[in-house]
Design a protein around this nucleic acid. Structure first.
Lengths: 118, 118
DNA sequence: TCACCTCTCTACAGCTCGTAGTACTACTAC
DNA sequence: GTAGTAGTACTACGAGCTGTAGAGAGGTGA
């Protein structure tokens, strides 16, 4: 998996926040601060779908884009990828566990407990 | 934090595997498959220390390089950074917990238990 | 028919990374 | 003391990625 650029991530964030597929125009309208040319948005959407981050379906002449995976899945995959980098996964995991905040440790613990019960 | 290129990571791996600081020449000797010019290695070491991944100290006229942080710390930081990307950390953590293998879940559980006990 | 929307293709500049040459300085062995 | 070696700093260049957008073509509604 590759990382994303800033604009790419802005656009992914918009699409992740939505629960229905959007057209390039709609995405463009939701990017506020920047005044981007419509083709810019289209180009980035196109690149994102080429990279597999977005799926797109026809809607008349336009494409409608939606995330290929949830943000959580993406984040979890990034985390696993980072973990794959190390020779010593245990040490990295231990360190990670120590670094998350208390409430997050709680979440992890819960998820792990549920795992165990299955 | 930024990602690392391929050669950069190869070099970091070499230095992480070492327990004493190395000179550019020594690092170069440890990169086998590729036949790199000495200056190439020096350039990359220089860039890595600029980026904060390496510390360097003088040894005569040469520099000796060593990782600024352990690989585990680096990996854990990457994981936290990924986690920061999401709006819903809990969901991402839960998904992550479900994705790690059984033995790793065990490690995590243990680390979290130790945390709790402190 | 004209204005507009949307698409695809192409382009370009800035940055990062792999790769290395050049020019200079200091040590080492004859 | 001179030639080779090792090391540094500086500079460079091409490839690939990303942000940005224009040009051109083909529909579509007024």
């Amino acid at each position: 998996m590759k990382g994303l650029g800033e604009l790419e991530r802005t656009i992914m964030d918009i699409l992740w926040a939505q629960n229905s597929p959007l057209t390039a125009r709609e995405v463009g309208r939701l990017i506020e601060d920047r005044d981007l040319a419509p083709t810019t948005v289209m180009t980035v959407l196109d690149r994102l779908s080429r990279k597999g981050f977005l799926d797109r379906t026809r809607d008349g002449r336009a494409w409608r884009y939606q995330p290929a995976a949830s943000r959580d899945a993406y984040v979890a995959e990034l985390m696993l990828e980072a973990l794959d980098m190390t020779g010593d996964r245990d040490a990295a995991l231990t360190r990670f566990a120590r670094a998350v905040s208390g409430s997050e440790a709680e979440i992890l613990r819960k998820a792990l407990t549920e795992l165990e019960e299955q």
